[in-house]
Design a protein around this nucleic acid. Sequence first.
DNA 1: TATTGTTATACTCTATAACTATA
DNA 2: TATAGTTATAGAGTATAACAATA
Lengths: 168, 168
Amino acid sequence: MSDPTPGLTPEQLGAYFALMEVSSLLQYAVDEHLRADGDLSWVQFQILARLTDAPGGKLRMTDLADGVVYSRSGLTYQAGLLDKRGLITRSPSPDDERSVLVTVTDAGRDLVAQVMPGHVESVRRLLFEPMAGRDLATLGAVLGRVREHMRANPPRSAKPRAGRARNA
Amino acid sequence: MSDPTPGLTPEQLGAYFALMEVSSLLQYAVDEHLRADGDLSWVQFQILARLTDAPGGKLRMTDLADGVVYSRSGLTYQAGLLDKRGLITRSPSPDDERSVLVTVTDAGRDLVAQVMPGHVESVRRLLFEPMAGRDLATLGAVLGRVREHMRANPPRSAKPRAGRARNA
DNA sequence: TATTGTTATACTCTATAACTATA
DNA sequence: TATAGTTATAGAGTATAACAATA
């Protein structure tokens, strides 16, 4: 980090570490709130939030896996937990009998609504409070571009099927 | 996310999600490389890198816990693994008999050196390739400021002692 | 009493591979 | 044959609390 960093300028290195630390601290804080306010992990919250946002509150497992989890069995596990708690429902898709349609229940929507204010407030306080309007615009633009770049350039060892469904 | 987001503008929400996804993808990719090139996890790499960077290659467990891990037992666990592999050494501190001084071994330094090029190259390719010089400057500055803000504002439920040593 | 660190334990989450069923 | 999903299993990592030792 002092010297053995050929290929990255000190400025880049600093930005890299700052990014990793900020996201780590943010996720930790947010996770804590979700846990306390609704007994939800970050992954579970994301699943519920995506469903809440989807038309009809329904998504296929595959669509859901996309971006939330890095393996299918991981999603099955999390969906199992949410199902047990009555926050989602799973049923075979009419279109494709192989697919499973996941649907948020009313209880699921209620829980999201219950947890959202505190969640959002954490993010606002920790991430955006110290940020000027101009900074926000740049940050959003840059990170958006980086995200697209990363999605288009999956790690060389991207698994053909078990990998993050993002690559599918 | 469509509506239930009082307190965050759509722009903020977008930046928030982009940040989380970018850091998640980056960490995943980087972790994969570290694992493949040196059988190291991200946490283990951070420990070794910090030691490599420290004067004399030595740090106390407490200093090391700071920022790397969220519990002391977690650090003990990771240090145990690195110790077993001969990458670090642990010995009682002369100054304070309670403390343990962790030292990188030559093998540890070698491993860091071996892993660093690929690591840095991943980061460069994924994170900085799509980034303009001006973007980098802003990103670094903003994230640096956010990091300071977060360090100064630990989550309300910061544990008195078990918490991330950062708060100690 | 407070701090440093370890240990025991329990638990969560993840990933791999094998398997079923449908397209 | 390829895709969607589940299951079994095994392993990595984490957190809590209890503990010992030093300041």
